[in-house]
């Protein structure tokens, strides 16, 4: 659906995007994470035709977005990170205006707007003036607005920023809902765990280039191998047996013990999951009373820190 290759953009001598690559399949909910100034907004603006790129390619549905951006306007719905609304317009009129931009008028427009307001749970605010809506409501309204022309690709720049937890949850629901309707969504955020929860794939951007990209599991897995395997046994005898066994195992790098819990760091070579399985079966076959055995989950927040820190020059 969307393929970005070698995208470049500089402002003066500042390189905002540095050979950015990205591919999003149709129907995916893609999360775009990165620290401030990483280039998320810049990328999204280029995709939606609000900014020129200095090099590289953006292809959407087989159409070159940098050359034929006109054709793509119908296919893309864009929601900026900061946006304003018109005073003196009611919520449904606000939507009707954008519908009229796409030539949807009269009864069709009215029906469409009602549906969209329903979709973002704003039906009860249809007759409220948009400038008196709360920030979260405006954000939902803007999301509805980006849907008036039924685009296939949604580009949402930090749609959940400034929302309270409940509104965030609702926003997530709406996005999942849209995704199940077959839309492809590119969404940016600073908060990795939040994205990981709802997105099918994630790209982490830093200093204008992609540092990690793939499904949430993949990203977690690549970083998980450095985490220790946690083994819990039922009694002290089992603990001693386990320590003996582990010390003989060549795969084991270090062991630390805390009461009945062993924390084992494996050597980072070869297939990590196979090493885990071999370790578990050796423990079990020696009748060590293992109560639980798992690889410590990477904390996504620390993962984010880790990835972005590695890129510091």
């Amino acid at each position: 659906m969307l393929k970005i290759t070698d995208l470049q953009k500089h402002f003066g001598s500042f390189q905002a995007l540095n050979h950015l690559n990205l591919e999003i399949a149709k129907g995916e909910l893609f999360g775009f994470v990165g620290p401030n100034g990483a280039g998320k907004t810049t990328t999204m603006k280029i995709i939606s035709g609000l900014m020129r790129a200095d090099g590289g390619e953006v292809v959407i549905d087989g159409i070159n977005a940098l050359k034929d951006s006109r054709k793509l306007k119908e296919k893309i719905g864009y929601m900026p990170d900061f946006f304003g609304v018109y005073d003196n317009l009611k919520a449904y009129e606000y939507l009707e205006f954008y519908a009229s931009v796409y030539g949807i008028l009269g009864r069709d427009a009215r029906e469409l707007c009602n549906n969209l307001l329903d979709l973002v749970n704003l039906s009860d605010k249809a007759d409220t003036y948009v400038d008196s809506l709360s920030r979260g409501m405006k954000q939902r309204l803007c999301l509805a607005r980006s849907l008036v022309h039924n685009p296939e690709l949604l580009i949402l720049d930090e749609p959940a920023s400034g929302l309270d937890p409940r509104a965030r949850f609702e926003m997530k629901e709406i996005l999942r809902n849209l995704c199940s309707m077959g839309k492809t969504i590119l969404i940016s955020s600073h908060i990795l765990p939040e994205l990981a929860e709802m997105c099918s794939s994630i790209g982490i951007i830093e200093h204008g280039s992609m540092v990690a990209c793939g499904s949430v599991e993949d990203i977690q897995n690549t970083l998980k191998t450095s985490n220790p395997v946690i083994i819990k046994v039922t009694d002290t005898k089992g603990l001693d047996d386990a320590i003996l066994l582990l010390k003989e195992n060549p795969e084991v790098q270090s062991i630390s013990v805390q009461e009945l819990t062993l924390s084992v760091v494996l050597k980072e070579e070869g297939d990590a999951s196979r090493a885990e399985a071999a370790l578990l079966s050796s423990l079990v076959s020696s009748h060590v009373p293992v109560r639980s055995f798992y690889r410590e989950e990477g904390n996504l927040e620390s993962l984010f820190m880790q990835i972005t820190a590695e890129q510091e020059p």
């Binding site: 603006k45 864009y78 931009v101 796409y102 607005r145």
Partner: peptide, 8 residues
Amino acid sequence: DILLTTNL
């Protein structure tokens, strides 16, 4: 910006 991303 929003206006510019529409097909106007």
